[in-house]
Design a protein around this nucleic acid. Structure first.
Lengths: 208, 208
DNA sequence: CTCTTATAGGACTATTTGGTCCATTTTACA
DNA sequence: TGTAAAATGGACCAAATAGTCCTATAAGAG
């Protein structure tokens, strides 16, 4: 909620907040399915059943709306991932996390990719503020992975000299790259394979 | 050149080919820098110094142009990668390949990402033909990596039971995910780290 | 209760954008 | 060299799109 709002001093009633939320929810959905560039403000209005003045009442324009979407998607994903990773401390737990993501992506045959990743690659070179927000979200997400790896290390499932941060980066890249290949192939397999390879490497560090 | 042209029966003079090439070159550049969605046909016309009728003379519309760009980028990258990977048969060679990509990406501080990857994530959910072309290009590219890995295996640098195709998929995903993280962070580091992790795993398979 | 501010609806405008059309020039080749 | 097809320039059009404005209603604070 840091990068998004166009109205910083103003009051916001419960009704207003609800309208704002409807707009962001509709925009999030549309931009995930159609992409940011292909989603027009009229699309968002039609999908949310809100009038144009409302949109401009709550947001300065499309860029501001996109930033709100970034924040919203970020919150949703971070919530999900905190839930999924926050207490994982075994390789088995990490594999269960993998299974959930793969299964979820398989439902749509890889389409649309990672909600955060697609947003990032479409927006990063166009809006510096959105890019920074996304970068920070990736860092946070990676931090959750690093937390898991640190617990693995503490539990002896990773050698003390293993570089937690680099492993977390590699795992996140494998995840994102896998999403992208799956999206292009319309097949979840490459995503599963790439995460598996990253996990296999992590696992291999202990038994050598 | 399979997915792109709008004019299949017609003749093409040298002059016409040159104009067509100018259009595709300008569109490629613009779509790489600005993204596909943010690049208008007028942008392409202005950058290529060509009149509108020319664009519609050579292409059915924006989608067809995008497909031509996909083909063009694909040819360029595959040419480069065939050159870079075609005769590599050692881990050291693979590391040199990595160095070249990292160095190149470092020049723009990660911006714009992978020419093929950015295109893929922006276009895959919007144009089935372009998606298929991109998917095939990734498969080809991965095939080059698989070739390297097979030569490594033949030379004893990889155990016979190593699954070449899966390793190639994982390496490609690491590359693409790395590009994306680097693009978002505007820092080449995560890309270097993720490729390094993939290479470290590949290397680790032999000495265990 | 009243007054101020937020919320809402939606018509309206300006601009951008994709796409068409046609008159003219250039090129290939019979 | 004559002619048909290709290439070109650019005006023109229609739809889409971002953004503005004005009026009316709902809601909260004093």
């Amino acid at each position: 909620m840091t990068t998004a709002d166009s109205r910083d001093g103003r009051r916001l009633t419960a009704r207003g907040a609800k309208t704002r939320a409807k707009i962001v929810a509709a925009a999030t959905e549309l931009m995930y399915i159609q992409g940011v560039g292909a989603t027009t403000l009229d699309d968002v209005l039609a999908a949310s059943g809100v009038s144009k003045s409302q949109l401009y009442h709550h947001f300065d324009g499309k860029d501001a709306l996109v930033r709100a979407v970034v924040d919203h998607v970020g919150e949703r994903i971070m919530e999900r991932e905190r839930e999924a990773l926050g207490h994982v401390s075994t390789i088995r737990g990490l594999r269960r996390w993998r299974d959930a993501l793969v299964q979820n992506n398989a439902l749509r045959h890889g389409a649309y990719g990672c909600a955060l990743g697609s947003l990032a690659s479409e927006v990063s070179d166009h809006d510096a503020l959105a890019r920074q927000a996304l970068s920070q979200l990736f860092t946070e997400w990676q931090g959750l992975l690093a937390g898991v790896l640190r617990r693995l290390q503490d539990g002896g499932a990773l050698p003390p000299e293993a570089s937690i941060d680099q492993l977390a980066t590699g795992l996140m890249a494998a995840l994102q790259g896998g999403y992208m290949l799956a999206q292009t192939a319309r097949d979840v397999t490459p995503m599963a394979t790439s995460i598996d390879m990253a996990l296999a490497y992590i696992e291999s560090l202990s038994d050598r």
